[in-house]
Amino acid sequence: MTARDLIPIAVLTVLAALLPLVVTSSPVLNFLVFMLIVALGAQGWNILGGFGGQFSFGHAAFFGTGAYATAILQLRYGVNAWAGLVLATAAGAAVGWAIGFLSFRSGLRGSYFALVTLAFAEVFRILANAASFTGGAAGLLIKLDVHPANLQFADRAVFYWLVLALVAAVLLLTRWIQRSRFGAQLVAVRENEDAAKALGVDSLKVKLRAIALSGGVTALSGCLYAQYFLYIDANIAYGSWISVELLLAPIIGGVGTVFGPVVGALTLHGLGEVAKQFAGRIPGIDLIVFGTVLVLAVAFARGGILGLLERLRDRGRGMVARGAKEVSHAGR
């Protein structure tokens, strides 16, 4: 990685970190924290779906695992919340590896892979909803005990900074993946798995590594969700809503790009809030907007918002270049 890779990430992180100094209203901070948690989970999806081309429709399986892991570890085993954060991430990576092992080894690709991930998430949801170990349908309540050692802060801004730092860390991770040999192999598998294999890429290993990383990052976001809202149940943690959110953000923002998931999450939730302001109390209005944006993005903006911006920039450059040519012609 070079300085050119790091500077945009650093600048954006610092700018975002200054926000709580300007904005102090708690609904806005709540919105920002939630948005960043979604962005973090979406970054996880993007590692597998964006760079690896394996579209998962069931990333709730990892989100929920992270959320339940930390809640259960704290409630049942008295584990410290910070340790819970680390263990939850590891649990997500392990679940990711296991699901990947089962499905990639059977050669599932494309729609089939999407379906099998959906089914795994659904199995987890039903189990978590029924087992008493996970609190059953009543869910789990993490005890309110505001102390930095418990990962609970009196000031929302602190939590915001924590999530932001993790989002920035994953931005770096993603940039590293993009520049690394592993990332190149992953993209090769996405573009043409057979060709990649022919060139000696161990596609199973590459995909497994990607899904483990992806599961870990998404589990981390689930863990933060549990820690921020202090309550989870099966329909929140393993619900299809989160699978959809985590997939929408990268697709809208720019699939397979470093900043795509963050841009997408911000755009979607920004639009959702605007729609709520305009339409008032109509239920589901934000989701109507999400769905419409998804269809429009696929129809008109492949590569998402970032792809669109890039194309505009290229067009702009093209115009400048043409303009320069004309000037030089005129000068002759």
């Binding site: 579209f55 429709f57 494309g110 729609s111 999407a114 959809v244 997939l247 697709i251 109509i282 239920p283 589901g284 209005i285 989701l287 109507i288 999400f290 769905g291 419409t292 944006v293 998804l294 269809v295 696929v298 129809a299 492949r302």
Partner: peptide
């Protein structure tokens, strides 16, 4: 194929929530 998956997903979200509204 991937796009179709996404478009139908988007459609389902819209339909479901229009009904909800």
């Amino acid at each position: 194929d991937g796009n179709i998956l996404l478009v139908t997903l988007g459609l389902s979200i819209v339909l479901e929530n229009v009904l909800l509204a």
